[in-house]
Nucleic acid binder design. Structure first.
Lengths: 193, 193
DNA sequence: CTATAGTGAGAATGACCATTCTCACTATAG
DNA sequence: CTATAGTGAGAATGGTCATTCTCACTATAG
């Protein structure tokens, strides 16, 4: 109950989430044991279970945090491109392409997690679904801001292209599908003028 | 060495693959034990390991078979629509929509499998990649047969839309993304006339 | 100083699973 | 009939976790 304990909890949580972010994405949820989280974060098992009563809870916290950080990265990359005079809805593909070309790329963490039946429950599925809804909503807002016709539909179409691009890039170990998706997006934007 | 034994092996293999097809897709690879395959197929563990020396081998056989059966289903559905006078590249989305609306839909088996890091090795990844390449090739052939401009690029664009549609439909438990993808495809076809 | 609450290290527990092994049985070759 | 190869049933083995528990230690309240 000392104030020091509270502070420790906060930084221990941060360390655990930092480790979770690294290993859950790289190796999948089933591929990571609580011991791995301990080893990577330096937070003992006892403390770990004090902070997150079960692996499920930790996974939920990771997914929730990932939504925030991924969206921040995505929106940040797009905002930077917009500032450089590029079309935001096309810049989205450039951001994904850069990510997919970086080492360790394994596709969308949310889609991958949803595929792990052993590790994922309804709570997790809800987080995954609202992440995708959040992404689509943001794309719709971009379409709207860009003055396109039927911006909501355009946002959804761009979203499907992005998800397909992320998945195919992972499975084929190539950025080519992202280029194809970008080409398609470009045609769709032209058609929505 | 008796001919009867050979026959048994053939039908035992068939029974095992039939079970594998059902349970691996529904519960994921990690979610299925060899015991589950035995219970579902009626082939004893001993025999099972005689036919497939390891779970990895069985998974590889399942993925290989799945490529064949999935493509046959996909091409069949599209051919039927073509006979009914529909545009094949749009019929693809109708086929996926029907599948996604059926109970037990969980997205693309290949993309899901690739996400299961614990269960998948390089051999499996190659099978997954060539499945996607096969699908894209087929779509390119359809685009070519349809007389569209830049058929290869069009096939890839449609492919990205299909993969995005399959993934989002699974994650959002909705066929709406498939409709959006179909709309997008329709615009792309118009732009490729 | 001394009792106490919290902690790290890591051992113990209980499940689960791939794979192998045992044993009793069957059908067939001879 | 009798030795043999193959089989089913399911137990045994070995490994991997998630989660809990033990024990010794530390710092602090009093």
């Amino acid at each position: 109950m000392s104030p020091a304990a509270t502070f420790d909890d906060v930084s221990a949580r941060a360390a655990v989430l930092r480790s979770a972010a690294a290993v859950f994405y790289a190796r999948g949820i089933a591929g990571v044991g609580m011991v791995d989280i301990r080893d990577d974060s330096g937070v003992s098992l006892r403390r770990l279970y004090g902070l997150y009563p079960s692996k499920r809870d930790l996974v939920a916290a990771w997914l929730t945090a990932r939504h925030t950080t991924w969206m921040a990265w995505f929106e940040g990359a797009i905002e930077r491109s917009r500032a450089a005079g590029e079309e935001p809805l096309l810049a989205a593909f450039d951001a994904i392409a850069e990510w997919a070309a970086s080492p360790g790329y394994r596709g969308c963490a949310f889609v991958n997690s949803a595929a792990e039946t052993t590790e994922i429950d309804e709570t997790h599925r809800r987080i995954v679904a609202s992440h995708k809804e959040g992404m689509l909503e943001y794309l719709g807002a971009l379409a709207s801001a860009g003055g396109y016709a039927r911006p909501d539909r355009l946002g959804r179409m761009i979203g499907v292209l992005l998800d397909g691009a992320m998945a195919e890039a992972a499975v084929l170990s190539s950025v080519e599908p992202i280029a194809a998706a970008r080409d398609a997006a470009s045609l769709l934007l032209a058609a929505s003028r």
